[in-house]
């Protein structure tokens, strides 16, 4: 029995969350097939066919898949499912939206956001925003899984290409209609949940204007900008920047916490980062307990110095 990976893409490029998911799938038994469902997205199917470990690409090109709407895409996954023992998607807003619907229609459970594959039936996933790890086993006939992209490496691209097989679209459901997509204004900066470097500010920044300082630093490091709940509650930044248990959970290679004391709520959202740097004037701030590198300093002195030195 084989593995089906649901590709995330924008009809032009394969999203790299797909490549992380392919890497995770390679740890499972079976040949890896990738479903590319979209509209006028032949180039995406070709990119998918060139990824290492991929044996076949299923290509469904239809206007009903143009925006990856959950109702129609889940139906397509359901029609393809009988041939597969595993169906995986990245645990991004794309995969999280579509896959549980498909699982329910197949009458099987879903294992969300895995960070480790222990064996063919057993997986590890964070619960309580990473404050505990659960080892989960499933004996469902089809295992439906979302994969935390940062927990698995990117797969490489081959020069050779695997077979691309066209698949008929399923009957349109059209319960929802796409109106528009407004890309985040900081479009030049990477997305918070996918960024390699995250710069996060706390209440120590004191004013909205001071956050501009962090933007300069973020631009220098090609980093995403985040914030603690305290900074959001104080109205310094909009709450889509909030990192923490009820905000976004991030695990970048480098996390720089500036003027953040380190409430439990916040640390739950960032403590899986590879390297954590904390800059805070309070030497007793809890953030220093989990920081790899701590600098006790006035951020209004240290941050400009950092910007100049980089």
């Amino acid at each position: 029995m084989n593995i089906l990976v649901i590709a995330e893409h924008n009809n032009q490029n394969l999203h790299n969350s797909t490549q992380h998911t392919i890497s995770a799938s390679h740890e499972l038994p079976g040949a890896i097939h990738v479903l590319v469902a979209g509209y006028n997205c032949k180039t995406v199917a070709q990119q998918a066919a060139q990824q290492e470990h991929v044996k076949k690409v299923l290509y469904a090109d239809d206007v009903i898949y143009q925006h990856g709407l959950a109702e129609d895409l889940a139906q397509l996954i359901v029609t393809l499912a009988p041939d597969y023992a595993y169906i995986l998607a990245p645990a991004t807003t794309f995969g999280k939206n579509v896959l549980p619907r498909a699982a329910a229609l197949l009458d099987v459970g879903q294992i969300s956001d895995i960070i480790q594959i222990i064996n063919a039936e057993t997986f590890m996933r964070p619960i309580y925003a990473g404050n505990a790890l659960a080892t989960i086993t499933s004996n469902d006939p089809i295992k439906i899984i979302t994969v935390r992209p940062t927990a698995f490496p990117l797969c490489a691209a081959n020069n050779t290409s695997s077979e691309i097989q066209s698949t008929t679209a399923s009957k349109p459901i059209q319960l929802s209609e796409f109106i528009s997509l407004a890309a985040t204004p900081s479009g030049t900066r990477p997305d918070l949940s996918a960024a390699r470097v995250v710069i996060a500010g706390g209440r120590g920044l004191q004013t909205k204007e001071n956050f501009a300082l962090l933007e300069i630093l973020a631009n220098k490091l090609n980093a995403a900008l985040g914030a603690s709940r305290a900074a959001v509650d104080a109205g310094l930044v909009p709450n889509d920047l909030q990192i923490g248990q009820t905000g976004k959970v991030v695990a970048p290679e480098l996390y720089i916490a500036i003027g953040i004391s380190g409430a439990i709520q916040h640390m739950a959202g960032m403590k899986d980062s590879k390297v954590i740097v904390a800059i805070n004037s309070d030497p007793d701030a809890p953030i220093f307990q989990i920081a790899d590198y701590g600098l006790v300093a006035d951020l209004f002195v240290a941050v400009p110095e950092l910007i100049n030195a980089l």
Binding site: G109, L133, A134, T135, I136
Partner: peptide, 16 residues
């Protein structure tokens, strides 16, 4: 059909 086998603390960070 999905069972939790065990719950463990997250991997501790070594002190910085």
């Amino acid at each position: 059909n999905i069972k939790t086998l065990q719950v463990t603390p997250p991997h501790a960070r070594k002190s910085g």
